[in-house]
Design a protein around this nucleic acid. Structure first.
Lengths: 140, 140
DNA sequence: CTGAATCCACCAAGATACTG
DNA sequence: CAGTATCTTGGTGGATTCAG
C-alpha cells in the first residue's frame, strides 16, 4: 500500500483506470450527495433532521440520494417500527473513509475559489472583447 | 494557511461552507472533465489528440468541457493561426494543483470500488427479498 | 484541423398530492 | 414521520451538419 504510490506519478498510468475516478465522481458528484454526507459526518440523523439541515432539497431528492448512498454502502438505514416511524441514517466505515479525500477536495475548493471566480471574470472580459471586435468587422 | 487546518476538524464547521465543495463538484463532477484533466496531466495536447485519447466523447462535449475548464482557469488555450489551424490545451498551475486532491479521490475509488460493487449486490438482494415478501403477503 | 450550430431524445429534478 | 406516485419541465448530452 505504501510502496504503491512510489510508482504512481500522477493520477494513473493507463487512461483506462481513469474511468474508476469518473465513475466515482458520477456517483458522488451530483448536487446533493456531498451535502448529505457532510451533514452525517457528526453522527446519525433522522430523515427529517437531514431534510431540515440540507434545506432546499426536496423530499424526493433526499429519498433518492439516501437510497443511492445506501445502495453503495456509504450509509446505513435503520428503521424503528414505532409510531410514528423513525428512520436513522448513519455513515458506514466506507462512508467515513470517503470524507478524507473529500476533505482534500474541499480544501482545494475553499483555497482556490477566488482564483476560479477571477478566471471567470477574465474569461467573460475576453469574450466580450472578441464579440465586439468580430461584430465591428462584419458590420463594416 | 497552516494554522487554518488546526481548527477544521472535519469537512466544515458550518454547513454553509459545504456549498463551496458542492459548487466545485458541480463543475468538475461531470462525465468528462476529470478525464480531460487526466489526459492533460502529462503535458499539453492538441484538440484532436484529446479527442482520440478520451474516446467516446463527442466533439461538442469536448469543446464544451475545454471551454469550461478554460473559463475556470484550469487550462490554457493556445491558438496557432497556421493552416491547418492548431490549438494546444495545457493545464495551468491551478489545474495542476487540482490533481493532488483528485489523486486522493482516485485512490479511494480504486481501493473501495470492490466494496461498493459488493454493497450494490447486497442491496439488490435485499430489494428482491423485500419485493417477493410483499407480493406474497398481498396475493394471499 | 478545430470548432460552431442545429435538432432531438432522454432524464434529472422540482412541485404537488397522497399513503401507511 | 417517512416516504411514494405522478406530472411537468429545463437542461444535458449525442448525432449530424456547416464553417473558417
Amino acid at each position: 500500500m505504501s510502496d504503491k504510490n512510489k510508482y504512481v506519478r500522477v493520477i494513473d498510468a493507463s487512461h483506462a483506470d481513469c474511468h474508476a475516478l469518473a465513475e466515482t465522481l458520477g456517483r458522488i458528484g451530483d448536487k446533493w450527495t456531498v451535502m448529505v454526507v457532510g451533514t452525517l459526518q457528526d453522527g446519525p440523523l433522522r430523515y427529517n433532521e437531514i431534510h431540515r439541515i440540507v434545506d432546499g432539497i426536496s423530499q424526493r431528492m433526499l429519498t433518492l440520494t439516501l437510497k443511492g448512498l445506501e445502495q453503495d454502502g456509504l450509509v446505513t438505514r435503520t428503521m424503528f417500527p414505532t409510531i410514528p416511524p423513525r428512520v436513522d441514517y448513519e455513515l458506514t466505515e466506507l462512508g467515513r473513509k470517503l470524507i478524507v479525500p473529500l476533505q482534500g477536495l474541499y480544501d482545494w475548493a475553499v483555497e482556490h475559489r477566488a482564483d476560479m471566480l477571477a478566471a471567470r471574470g477574465r474569461f467573460a472580459e475576453k469574450q466580450r472583447a472578441a464579440v465586439s471586435r468580430s461584430s465591428s468587422t462584419t458590420l463594416r
